[in-house]
């Protein structure tokens, strides 16, 4: 099964895979950050008094959470260049990594919408009322009183979202983005044996997810102390 084991596990190949792992981490970090922005907008929309932002946010969450991520990646991969071609008449070549980042950001934004919303709604209603009786506007209430408290509840699920994104970044290998899984496949093709590179990729994914969850546990502990 591991015919090319000793040939694959060389320093050079491990460094090559390490680069892929860094790319996966980078993609996940970008998606988490952009998703946080989209998620904040989405949560604001979903909690809005007005119908239009509420409807848009609801549609966004329903569509993204109701369809497979792989399909979303493939669709964005073909939709963006064809829109560009339709508008400018030119052919667009974008880095598949960039497409992957966009797709994962949009996807994560929908999940983060729900996560942020439940964090905000989990803050005691009495906090809103206290601010109201003190004359604070609802925007200032949100910014100064609610969000800082919601943040504490949001951090732990955000960390799991980051772990999910690290793993899900592997899906963009299907559009040719050279991240960790794709790197393994490239090596597999070189040595006519996939098991050893896959094993190496699994080890890298595990290291990343374990380290992130350990950091997460530390952060959670620190947040709990200030309660």
């Amino acid at each position: 099964m591991f015919k090319a084991f000793d040939k694959v596990f060389t320093l050079e190949n491990i460094l090559y895979m390490g680069k892929g792992a860094l790319m996966a981490l980078c993609i996940a970090a970008v998606a988490l950050t952009c998703g946080l922005i989209l998620g904040t907008l989405g949560a604001t929309g979903r909690n809005s008094r007005h119908v239009i932002p509420r409807t848009i946010a609801n549609l966004y969450v329903t569509i993204i959470r109701g369809t497979p991520l792989l399909l979303q990646i493939l669709m964005i991969f073909s939709v963006i260049p064809s829109i560009y071609t339709a508008i400018t008449g030119k052919v667009l070549r974008i880095d598949p990594i960039l497409i992957g980042m966009i797709a994962l950001s949009i996807n994560s934004g929908a999940y983060q919408t729900e996560l942020i919303r439940s964090g905000i709604n989990g803050v005691d209603k009495g906090q809103w009322e206290a601010c109201e009786t003190l004359g604070l506007s609802s925007w200032k209430t949100m910014k100064l009183v609610i969000l800082p408290q919601a943040f504490k509840r949001i951090v732990p699920p955000l960390i799991s979202e980051f772990i999910t994104l690290i793993k899900d970044s592997s899906l963009i290998s299907c559009i040719g983005a050279v991240e960790l899984l794709k790197s393994a496949q490239v090596l597999g093709a070189d040595y006519f044996e996939v098991m050893s590179p896959y094993l190496l990729a699994a080890i890298f994914y595990l290291i990343m997810t374990i380290v992130v969850s350990m950091i997460g546990a530390k952060i959670e502990k620190r947040l709990a102390v200030s309660d």
């Binding site: 009495g126 906090q127 206290a130 009183v145 408290q149």
Partner: peptide, 10 residues
């Protein structure tokens, strides 16, 4: 003044 104080815990 509320029954449950509603102070800002943060």
């Amino acid at each position: 003044v509320f029954q449950h104080f509603n102070l800002f815990p943060n």
